[in-house]
Structures are given as structure tokens and as C-alpha cells.
Simulated assay, not measured.
Amino acid sequence: MRLRHALTAVLGAALLLTAIPGSAAAASGQFRYSYVTVDGDEASGFLNNPPSDRCINLHGVGQDNPQPGHSPKNRTDTWATVFTGTNCQGDSFRLRPLTGGASERLKVRSVVFG
């Protein structure tokens, strides 16, 4: 009898573990963008292996910098959606995995992968 109860407990635990979603996956690769600093200098920003399904405000182009970023390049293995505003608001544009990119005409302040 004890063996049967132990087996039932193990099978129940295994079912619970498969029902619990895993941690958020990360996109593999690098996302790059260019921007002008508040001092007027050209700079590059990048995200290495960014988390998926989470909005990321891009460094250097937040609300304290009047100039947005530009020329995004998606070199990750996941679709990237860039936004004109912070907190993934405003107009958006999708960049394909590995080769997606846009010119300096595309202005960006945040991105989400997935």
C-alpha cells in the first residue's frame, strides 16, 4: 500500500511541475541602436540576450533625453517590436530576427522581444 501512495504522490508532483510555466526565456543575441546624448555626442546602445515578453526602456533615450534613439538592429533570434515612446507606448514597428533593421528615420525609446 505504501508503494502505491508514494507512486501516486510522485506522479501528482510531476503533473504539477509540468503545469507550472517556466521562467521567461531570453532572446539570444544582441539588439543595437544609435542615439545622440544630451551633450550632443553620437552614441550606441545595445542589449545582450534581452528577456522576452518584457518591455525594456532603452538606455540614453528616456524621458530625460529629448532625442529618441534611431537605426535599431535586431540581431537576436526573436522578433523585436520597437516603440516611439517609453514603456512600449506610441507607434510601433516589428524587426525580424537576426537581420531586422531600420534606418535613422525610425525613432525608438523602448522595445519588447517575443
Score class of each variant (00 low, 15 high):
Thr78His: 10
Val112Tyr: 03
Gly90Tyr: 10
Thr78Cys: 09
Leu47Ala: 05
Asn65Val: 11
Arg4Asn: 01
Thr81Tyr: 04
Thr8Pro: 01
Pro21Thr: 09
Pro68Phe: 08
Thr76Asn: 06
Gln67Gly: 00
Gly60Lys: 14
Leu11Gly: 00
Gly90Thr: 09
Ser52Met: 07
Asn87Arg: 14
Pro50His: 04
Gly45Cys: 08
Lys107Phe: 08
Leu17Met: 12
Asp64Arg: 15
Ser71Met: 01
Thr76Met: 01
Ser28Glu: 05
Gly114Tyr: 04
Tyr35Gly: 04
Pro68Gly: 00
Ala25Asn: 08
Pro66Phe: 13
Tyr35Cys: 01
His70Asp: 04
Leu98Cys: 05
His70Cys: 01
Thr8Ala: 15
Phe46Asn: 12
Ser92Trp: 04
Asp77Cys: 03
Arg75Thr: 06
Pro66Leu: 08
Gly85Val: 12
Gly62Ser: 08
Asp39Thr: 15
Gly62Thr: 10
Phe83Asn: 01
Gly69Glu: 03
Gln30Gly: 00
Phe31Leu: 02
Gly12Cys: 14
Leu11Arg: 11
Ile56Lys: 08
Trp79Ala: 00
Asn48Val: 15
Leu47Asp: 02
Gln30Arg: 14
Leu17Thr: 12
His5Ile: 10
Val61Trp: 12
Pro66Trp: 09
Val36Met: 01
Ala14Gly: 03
Gln63Glu: 02
Gly114Lys: 08
Arg2Ser: 04
Ile20Met: 11
Gly40Tyr: 09
Leu17Glu: 03
Val36Cys: 00
Glu42His: 10
Arg96His: 07
Ala27Gly: 02
Tyr33Met: 06
Phe113Trp: 02
Gly100Met: 13
Ala6Lys: 13
Ala27Lys: 06
Leu16Met: 10
Leu98Ser: 10
Leu58Gln: 13
Gly12Trp: 09
Thr84Phe: 02
Ser71Arg: 11
Thr78Gly: 01
Trp79Glu: 05
Thr37Arg: 06
Glu42Gln: 13
Ser44Cys: 00
Thr37His: 05
Phe113Asn: 03
Ala102Tyr: 09
Gly40Ala: 02
Thr86Asn: 15
Ala43Arg: 12
Ser52Ile: 01
Arg94Ala: 12
Arg32Ile: 01
Leu3Thr: 14
Lys73Val: 06
Ala27Ser: 08
Gly90Leu: 10
Leu7His: 05
Lys107Asn: 06
Glu42Leu: 15
Asn48Ile: 13
Ser23Met: 03
Leu11Cys: 11
Ala13Arg: 07
Leu3Pro: 02
Leu95Arg: 07
Arg4His: 07
Gln63Cys: 00
Arg2Glu: 00
Leu58Tyr: 11
Pro97Gln: 09
Ala102Gln: 14
Phe83His: 07
Ala13Met: 13
Ser28His: 07
Ile56Thr: 13
Leu58Ser: 05
Gln67His: 09
Ala14Tyr: 10
Ala27Trp: 02
Ser110Glu: 09
His59Lys: 11
Tyr35Ser: 02
Thr18Phe: 15
His70Thr: 03
Pro68Trp: 03
Arg105Ser: 07
Thr76Ala: 04
Val10Arg: 12
Tyr33Trp: 15
Ile56Val: 14
Lys107Ala: 06
Gly90Val: 10
Ala19Lys: 13
Gly60Thr: 13
Gly85Pro: 13
Ile20Phe: 14
Thr81Cys: 04
Ala19Cys: 15
Val61Arg: 11
Gln67Asn: 08
Ser52Leu: 09
Val111Leu: 05
Phe83Pro: 08
Pro72Asn: 03
